[in-house]
Computed example of a mutant assay.
Amino acid sequence: MKVTLGQYLASIRNDRKMSLRQVEEASGKEVSNAYLSQLENGKIQQPSPTILNKLAEIYGIEYTTLMELAGYLPPASSREAGDRHGRVATFADHNLSVDEEAQLLEYLQFIRSRKRT
């Protein structure tokens, strides 16, 4: 199941412990809290690259990730050549504690062990 742009933005905002209004203020009111809410709820699925760039700056995340999720760029796996296996961890942009990271790895092992049987 692929994460949507809205789900990803909401997850990052919550990880940064920011309210919709705080993001609006941090953007210099370029991104209104109502617009961001619509983005996060999937009502707006392809915001302008300018909005995505501003959100990437505020959250400290990769602009290209947002461009991919909005459908402006193909997934990195189809753009990159070489033998690269896998992809960047889904939660790489989140501020995980050591304990949370360990629990995610443990859960990943559990999921993989279920697939083998």
Rank of each mutant, 00 (worst) to 15 (best):
Ile111Ala: 08
Arg13Leu: 04
Leu20Thr: 02
Ala34Lys: 10
Val88His: 05
Glu24Ala: 14
Lys43Glu: 13
Leu96Asp: 06
Ala102Thr: 12
Ser27Thr: 11
Asn14Val: 01
Gly86Arg: 08
Thr4Glu: 12
Thr4Gly: 11
Glu101Tyr: 12
Glu25Leu: 13
Leu108Ile: 12
Ala56Asn: 09
Lys43Asn: 13
Asn14Leu: 12
Ala56His: 06
Asn95Trp: 00
His94Gln: 15
Glu100Arg: 12
Glu101Met: 13
Glu100Lys: 10
Gln45Asp: 10
Met67Lys: 09
Tyr35Ala: 08
Leu96Gly: 05
Val98Phe: 10
Phe91Ser: 11
Ser32Thr: 15
Arg84Leu: 13
Ser77Trp: 03
Ser19Glu: 03
Glu101Ser: 11
Gly42Thr: 09
Leu108Val: 12
Val23Phe: 05
Thr50Asn: 12
Lys29Trp: 02
Gln38His: 14
Glu101Asp: 11
Ser11Gln: 13
Gln38Phe: 02
Gly6Tyr: 03
Gly28Val: 09
Arg21Ala: 10
Thr64Pro: 00
Arg114Gln: 15
Gln109Ile: 05
Arg16Glu: 04
Arg87Met: 11
Leu69Cys: 06
Ser11Arg: 13
Leu5Cys: 05
Val3Glu: 14
Gln103Trp: 09
Arg13Asp: 04
Glu40Ser: 08
Ser48Trp: 06
Arg87Cys: 07
Ser37Pro: 01
Glu106Thr: 14
Ala102Cys: 00
Leu20Gln: 04
Ala10Pro: 00
Ser77Met: 08
Ile51Leu: 03
Asp93Glu: 14
Asn33Leu: 06
Arg16Trp: 02
Leu66Gly: 04
Thr65Ala: 11
Val23Met: 02
Ser77Lys: 14
Arg114Gly: 05
Leu66Trp: 04
Leu108His: 05
Thr90His: 10
Arg79Trp: 08
Leu69Phe: 07
Asn53Cys: 05
Gln103Asn: 11
